[in-house]
Simulated scan of single mutants.
Amino acid sequence: MAGGTSSAPPETSSGSPLGIVAGRGPIPLAVAEAAREEGRAVFIVGIPGETEKEIECFPHEWIKLGALGRTVRAFKSAGCEELVMIGPLTRPELSSLKLDWGGVKFLSRFVKLMRQGDDGLLRGFVDFFEKDHGFRVIPAEQVLKGLAAPPGCWTVKRPDEQAERDIVRGRDLLNTIGRFDMGQGTVICRGIVLAIEGPEGTDAMLTRVAGLPPSLRAAEGSRAGVLVKLPKPDQDRRVDLPTIGVTTVENAARSGLAGIAVETSGALVVELEKLIARANELGLFVVALEGGRHG
């Protein structure tokens, strides 16, 4: 998969080509499709072993994570001025990085950033592209309209009083631990914190919840508890917003939860209509809070 390169796209009437640093999952491809539908050229840098191989439908280059100099040259050669950084990446082991000269020059900063947690690391990469090399990093939802979570309750089912209390407790918890650069998700059931998202991600957290004793979760034949996913208080919202999709809904249902709460414009939603239809089918609510507040 590594090493494949296609020619850079021409500039269009919509402005310079959009550069995409593509992590895992379907959103990088969705952003590329949205840009192309608007008549804008796209150039994608994919990370071997992380990015979906379907990016090869677009002008692209496969570049290993530590090859920062090559990444910059690829975007410059393609004529990109704006970049979207989208899709999760596995936190790299320093010893496994294949650094080029650009990566070597960034190494001392990278080591310091690794000690600052995920937020610090992401801010460092944004600064690398913007301050060091003159790109503009823009949020994915600026390109893919409808990607940001809309306000209100999206589903037929709505949270009951207990779910409302669980949402408030989850919001308060995440706002507190987020200052320590901890996870963006938690599961609260009847006031009890069942799980806090770690580096393994939301789906793995929900799998843990599904394995808990039934006495801690919903009674058989009923649903209780809420998955709450919010951005960290001080994070750069152009990158690494919480993301939910149909799989999130299905895993929440498998864990016996009653619903999901996110923040309006503080989460990315993959295939909103399909997500709503699946949540209605499974009997879950999905609600977006205004500014992290509910009610």
Results as ranks from 00 to 15, higher is better:
G87Y: 01
E197C: 03
G170W: 02
S95A: 12
L227D: 09
P28H: 02
P150D: 15
D160Y: 09
L99N: 03
E82Y: 03
S77E: 14
D118Y: 05
L83G: 01
D181V: 09
I167S: 01
P92F: 14
E56W: 00
G183R: 10
D181W: 09
D234T: 15
S255Y: 00
C189F: 00
C189V: 07
T243C: 07
R73A: 10
G183L: 03
L216N: 02
V239I: 14
V168S: 09
A8K: 11
V168K: 15
I244A: 03
D132L: 01
Q235K: 15
K98V: 09
G69N: 06
S265F: 02
G191T: 05
L97S: 11
D127H: 12
L241V: 12
G211M: 14
L68R: 11
E130K: 05
P26N: 05
C80W: 04
P17H: 00
I86F: 06
I86T: 01
D127M: 10
I20D: 01
L65E: 15
K112C: 12
G211Y: 07
M1L: 13
T71F: 07
P28T: 04
G283A: 07
K112A: 12
R217C: 02
P26F: 06
I167A: 01
G152M: 15
V42G: 04
V137H: 09
